[in-house]
Write a protein that binds this DNA or RNA. Structure first.
Length: 586
RNA sequence: GCGCUUGUAGCUCAGCUGGAUAGAGCAUCGGCCUUCUAAGCCGAGGGUCGCAGGUUCGACUCCUGCCAAGCGUGCCA
């Protein structure tokens, strides 16, 4: 309907041009909106107000002319000029009610579209270091990223979801060393635990299992482990130097093969845990992309070579630098350290080169907001590689700050004090967690009060929406118990009987679903869909309380049943897109 | 210091990229269960849209300057 009005208005503009009322080069953007108030009809446009200046008349007069040149259409019963010059369109009820048939015919497909036209989009999200379980901050990225990806898929993009596994680098060495030290404790070799190590209980679990499965293979005398190691900061030393020395000691005492086994064992356990966690959260990936792979297959060297050939690399103070400041970054960045090792950023350059080579039309990175300073250097790298940096879209997710009542909960991976995603799921459930995470705009800082989410579950908005779905199911069960049958065709023939205001409002909301999906997807704003579902549920509950569906009049009854079944369908479509369950009863 | 993000009801947040009288939920107060699930519905109160200018028919929305909060500003990842 919206598109139809657009074309009709376009024709009016052309007519007015040929009459000389409008200039030939006036090509306004035709803007049709839903009227916010029912008194303003169904659709509205501000076209006359936009064009009034060029046409040198006042908006209301111009609106008159637009209307008089407007082709008649059976779907439109009335056109009005209102306020400063809005043109309001009133749609006839048959056209209005037709959406119930459309929803029935399309079923699960209702709302899907093909505006993405099969364009390839990659969405990378979460990508947490595999150094420990996911916490509630990652949960937000997971819920948001997957919702964005699934929405884009729903409107016709060819979407690939990816997790970048940072399975290389110093953090991983710290992890392996932390595990080893806990393992030594299991064996009875007591070594003071470094302040910079990973202190979580899960490290002990991993160490315990390695000890159980492999015995004393990794055991080395405590005296040798600590011999000549520089002091930790608790002893007035430097924690970085301390941990680096311990890593080196682990490598030398264990030898490359055993060290690598230990490293791999830790990585596997943690990554498997992350995969399972996400799966249970309803998040799936097409690709788990390994950073180590990039480092081992020469991609990093290749990427740096390309930067060098383009003249963007130079040597300074023993390191190799990328002159990103020439491309909009604040300063130049090191890609190869003094010690010869490439930096994390170098891997990331290679990773983005790899993404480009895979032929995506658009690359979306969902990052925690604390990484925002990283964006200019990645864009600079893409440009330097000769790519179109506008292909990259970075969506930032603000941290979720956890509260239990008024108490702010600590969130530090290193100290091991954090609420895991798994704990959150078991406390509030998958559905509520996903709903909560996606309910707010991603750039909003978010306060997540566990006490509220757990102790008052009945106030949780997710139940409100699910309850609407369950209520329709319940009505259908009642229908059955009364020995009545639903007569689809009879209902469709009598949709005109749905003349109550509550019915009309509900139908309008149903018809907004496709455009809501479209907007939510293109703007990368899943909260728009949540907002919509809450409105739809509200319309339904209000209707439910105001009118009886299972009335004796068989025509009206079936018309109403068709309406609430359409509502059920749209609720189900929206919720399942967000990977939230649609219970038949509650 | 500089950069990014945010500032809307007591609290948590929407506000459809500039439209008509700024909206929900929670909390508070008052109503509605012999009728399809009261996890629901109806009503009331509650606002200097951080502050000050500017742009125009029209600003919560765009521009500038302040104020406040969070984050960033590593040869960490």
């Amino acid at each position: 309907m919206k598109h139809k009005l657009e074309t009709l208005l376009q024709q009016s503009v052309e007519t007015l041009k040929s009459e000389g009322i409008l200039n030939q080069d006036d090509n306004p953007k035709i803007n049709i909106e839903r009227a916010r108030d029912t008194r303003h009809g169904d659709f509205t446009t501000n076209l006359a107000m936009i064009l009034a200046k060029q046409a040198k008349t006042n908006p209301r007069q111009l609106a008159e002319k637009i209307i008089s040149s407007f082709a008649t259409d059976s779907a439109i019963v009335k056109i009005e000029i209102a306020g400063p010059g809005f043109i309001n369109f009133f749609i006839n009820t048959d056209t209005h009610n037709e959406v119930i048939k459309q929803i029935h015919d399309a079923g699960k497909q209702y709302g899907l579209s093909n505006i993405g036209a099969g364009k390839k989009i990659q969405v990378e999200f979460v990508s947490a270091n595999p150094t420990g379980p996911l916490h509630v901050g990652h949960g937000r990225g997971a819920a948001y990223g997957s919702a964005v990806a699934d929405l884009l898929q729903a409107v016709g993009f060819d979407v690939s979801k990816e997790y970048y596994v940072n399975d290389a680098g110093r953090q991983m060495d710290i992890l392996a060393t932390s595990i080893w030290l806990r393992y030594l404790e299991e064996c009875g070799e007591v070594v003071a635990f470094p302040s910079n190590g990973y202190r979580g209980e899960y490290i002990r679990d991993i160490a315990f299992n390695i000890h159980k499965n492999t015995g004393n293979d990794y055991r080395r005398p405590a005296e040798l482990v600590v011999e000549d190691i520089p002091a930790d900061d608790s002893q007035g030393g430097d924690k970085e130097k301390h941990i680096d020395a311990l890593i080196d000691r682990a490598k030398t005492l264990l030898g490359p093969s055993l060290y690598s086994d230990l490293f791999q064992a830790g990585l596997t356990v943690i990554l498997d845990d992350i995969k399972q966690d996400l799966e249970e959260f309803g998040v799936s990936y097409h690709e788990w992309f390994s950073e180590r792979l990039l480092m081992n297959d020469g991609s990093v060297q290749e990427a740096l070579k390309r930067l060098d050939e383009a003249g963007y690399l130079y040597e300074k103070e023993g390191a190799t630098w990328f002159s990103s400041s020439r491309l909009g970054d604040e300063k130049d960045r090191v890609v190869i350290r003094e010690n010869g090792q490439s930096t994390y950023f170098a891997s990331d350059i290679a990773y983005h080169m790899n993404k480009l080579d895979r032929g995506f039309d658009q690359i979306i990175n969902v990052w925690g907001a604390d990484h925002h300073g990283y964006i200019p250097r990645v864009r600079a790298a893409m440009t330097a590689l000769g790519a179109d940096e506008s292909k990259l879209k970075v969506l930032l997710v603000q941290f979720a700050i956890l509260y239990r009542g008024t108490e702010r909960l600590p969130m530090s991976t290193r100290s091991g004090e954090f609420v895991t995603l798994r704990q959150l799921r078991s406390e509030v459930g998958k559905d509520a967690a996903r709903f909560f995470y996606v309910m707010r705009r991603s750039e909003q800082h978010m306060d997540f009060d566990l006490k509220l989410a757990t102790s008052k579950t009945n106030e949780n908005p997710v139940f409100y929406v699910q309850y609407a779905h369950a209520r329709v199911c319940s009505v259908l069960r009642q229908l059955d118990e009364k020995g009545w049958k639903k007569d689809l065709l009879l209902g469709m023939e009598h949709l005109y009987m749905l003349a109550e205001e509550h019915e009309s409002t509900l139908i309008t909301t149903l018809s907004k679903y496709p455009e809501t999906l479209e907007r939510a997807a293109l703007q990368h704003e899943p909260h728009v869909l949540i907002q919509y579902l809450r409105e739809l549920a509200n319309n339904f509950h209000t209707y439910y309380n105001a009118h009886q569906f299972l009335v004796d009049d068989v025509k009206l009854r079936n018309a109403r049943l068709n309406l609430i079944c359409a509502t059920k369908q749209v609720l189900a479509n929206g919720l399942s897109l967000l990977n939230i369950n649609t219970p038949e009863s509650m």
